[in-house]
Protein backbone atom coordinates (compact mmCIF):
# COMPACT_ATOMS: atom_id res chain seq x y z
CA UNK A 1 0.00 0.00 0.00
CA UNK A 2 2.87 2.32 0.90
CA UNK A 3 4.62 1.75 -2.47
CA UNK A 4 1.39 2.24 -4.40
CA UNK A 5 0.91 5.62 -2.69
CA UNK A 6 4.50 6.69 -3.30
CA UNK A 7 4.39 5.58 -6.95
CA UNK A 8 1.05 7.32 -7.53
CA UNK A 9 2.31 10.56 -6.02
CA UNK A 10 5.48 10.36 -8.13
CA UNK A 11 3.59 9.71 -11.35
CA UNK A 12 1.04 12.49 -10.71
CA UNK A 13 3.68 15.02 -9.69
CA UNK A 14 5.94 13.98 -12.54
CA UNK A 15 3.08 14.33 -14.99
CA UNK A 16 2.44 17.88 -13.81
CA UNK A 17 6.11 18.67 -13.83
CA UNK A 18 6.69 17.29 -17.33
CA UNK A 19 3.60 19.06 -18.56
CA UNK A 20 4.78 22.31 -17.06
CA UNK A 21 8.18 22.10 -18.73
CA UNK A 22 7.39 20.44 -21.97
CA UNK A 23 7.93 22.31 -25.20
CA UNK A 24 5.25 22.52 -27.80
CA UNK A 25 5.79 22.81 -31.53
CA UNK A 26 5.40 26.58 -31.28
CA UNK A 27 8.15 26.79 -28.67
CA UNK A 28 10.47 24.67 -30.74
CA UNK A 29 9.76 26.68 -33.87
CA UNK A 30 10.30 29.98 -32.11
CA UNK A 31 13.78 28.91 -31.05
CA UNK A 32 14.60 27.04 -34.20
CA UNK A 33 16.66 29.80 -35.76
CA UNK A 34 18.09 31.23 -32.54
CA UNK A 35 21.46 29.56 -32.93
CA UNK A 36 22.74 29.40 -36.43
CA UNK A 37 25.59 27.14 -37.33
CA UNK A 38 28.80 29.02 -37.90
CA UNK A 39 29.65 29.05 -41.55
CA UNK A 40 33.22 28.01 -41.78
CA UNK A 41 35.24 26.97 -44.73
CA UNK A 42 38.24 24.85 -43.88
CA UNK A 43 41.52 25.76 -45.56
CA UNK A 44 41.99 22.20 -46.74
CA UNK A 45 40.10 19.44 -48.45
CA UNK A 46 40.32 15.81 -47.46
CA UNK A 47 40.78 14.03 -50.74
CA UNK A 48 42.85 10.88 -50.69
CA UNK A 49 45.00 10.81 -53.82
CA UNK A 50 45.55 7.29 -55.13
CA UNK A 51 47.60 8.24 -58.19
CA UNK A 52 50.91 7.26 -56.66
CA UNK A 53 52.02 5.56 -53.45
CA UNK A 54 53.80 8.55 -51.93
CA UNK A 55 50.79 10.82 -52.37
CA UNK A 56 48.50 8.07 -51.09
CA UNK A 57 50.63 7.74 -47.96
CA UNK A 58 50.68 11.49 -47.27
CA UNK A 59 47.07 12.32 -48.11
CA UNK A 60 45.78 9.11 -46.51
CA UNK A 61 47.78 9.81 -43.35
CA UNK A 62 46.42 13.32 -43.20
CA UNK A 63 42.83 12.15 -43.72
CA UNK A 64 43.20 9.49 -41.02
CA UNK A 65 44.68 12.02 -38.58
CA UNK A 66 41.99 14.63 -39.25
CA UNK A 67 39.03 12.23 -39.10
CA UNK A 68 40.03 9.91 -36.27
CA UNK A 69 42.53 11.74 -34.08
CA UNK A 70 42.33 15.51 -34.46
CA UNK A 71 38.51 15.57 -34.40
CA UNK A 72 38.46 13.91 -30.95
CA UNK A 73 40.26 16.74 -29.23
CA UNK A 74 40.05 20.51 -28.95
CA UNK A 75 42.39 22.99 -30.55
CA UNK A 76 45.86 22.25 -29.23
CA UNK A 77 48.14 23.73 -31.87
CA UNK A 78 49.56 27.14 -31.02
CA UNK A 79 49.39 28.25 -34.64
CA UNK A 80 46.80 29.21 -37.18
CA UNK A 81 46.57 27.34 -39.51
CA UNK A 82 47.29 24.28 -37.42
CA UNK A 83 50.40 22.20 -38.10
CA UNK A 84 48.53 19.44 -39.97
CA UNK A 85 46.76 21.90 -42.28
CA UNK A 86 50.01 23.84 -42.70
CA UNK A 87 51.84 20.62 -43.61
CA UNK A 88 49.25 19.68 -46.19
CA UNK A 89 49.18 23.12 -47.78
CA UNK A 90 52.91 23.69 -47.79
CA UNK A 91 53.55 20.31 -49.42
CA UNK A 92 50.90 21.15 -52.01
CA UNK A 93 52.45 24.58 -52.61
CA UNK A 94 56.16 23.87 -52.33
CA UNK A 95 56.55 20.16 -53.04
CA UNK A 96 59.45 18.39 -51.33
CA UNK A 97 60.75 21.64 -49.80
CA UNK A 98 57.33 21.91 -48.18
CA UNK A 99 57.99 18.64 -46.37
CA UNK A 100 61.02 20.21 -44.63
CA UNK A 101 58.97 23.34 -43.99
CA UNK A 102 56.30 21.18 -42.31
CA UNK A 103 58.82 19.40 -40.08
CA UNK A 104 60.41 22.73 -39.18
CA UNK A 105 56.94 24.00 -38.23
CA UNK A 106 56.60 21.07 -35.78
CA UNK A 107 59.79 22.14 -34.00
CA UNK A 108 58.41 25.69 -33.70
CA UNK A 109 54.99 24.61 -32.40
CA UNK A 110 55.61 25.34 -28.72
CA UNK A 111 54.61 28.94 -28.01
CA UNK A 112 57.97 29.92 -26.53
CA UNK A 113 58.68 32.51 -29.21
CA UNK A 114 55.51 34.66 -29.12
CA UNK A 115 57.10 37.93 -30.28
CA UNK A 116 57.91 36.44 -33.64
CA UNK A 117 54.29 36.13 -34.77
CA UNK A 118 51.18 38.23 -35.14
CA UNK A 119 48.00 37.06 -33.43
CA UNK A 120 45.22 35.71 -35.63
CA UNK A 121 42.26 37.58 -34.11
CA UNK A 122 39.36 35.14 -34.74
CA UNK A 123 41.23 32.17 -33.26
CA UNK A 124 43.59 34.00 -30.89
CA UNK A 125 46.48 31.87 -32.08
CA UNK A 126 49.83 32.73 -33.63
CA UNK A 127 49.45 33.49 -37.30
CA UNK A 128 51.90 31.61 -39.46
CA UNK A 129 50.51 31.16 -42.97
CA UNK A 130 51.99 29.05 -45.73
CA UNK A 131 54.14 31.07 -48.10
CA UNK A 132 55.40 30.27 -51.53
CA UNK A 133 59.10 29.55 -51.20
CA UNK A 134 61.28 31.29 -53.79
CA UNK A 135 64.49 29.48 -54.57
Amino acid sequence: MKWVTITSIFIISAAFTFNAHSQGTTDVNSFRNLFRPVESRPEYSIKVDTKNEFRLLLTGGFAFYKVFISSQDGVRCTFYPSCSVYALNTIKTNGLTGLFDAIDRLTRCNGINPKKYHIHEPTQRFYDPVTKIHH
Binding site: F100, I103, R108
Partner: peptide
Amino acid sequence: VGFYSANLFGSWK
Protein backbone atom coordinates in the same frame (compact mmCIF):
# COMPACT_ATOMS: atom_id res chain seq x y z
CA VAL B 1 67.76 13.07 -40.29
CA GLY B 2 64.32 14.59 -40.94
CA PHE B 3 64.68 17.15 -38.15
CA TYR B 4 68.26 17.92 -39.21
CA SER B 5 67.21 18.61 -42.81
CA ALA B 6 64.25 20.67 -41.61
CA ASN B 7 66.61 22.62 -39.35
CA LEU B 8 68.73 23.56 -42.39
CA PHE B 9 65.64 24.75 -44.21
CA GLY B 10 64.34 26.49 -41.09
CA SER B 11 67.62 28.39 -40.70
CA TRP B 12 67.42 29.63 -44.27
CA LYS B 13 63.81 30.67 -43.69
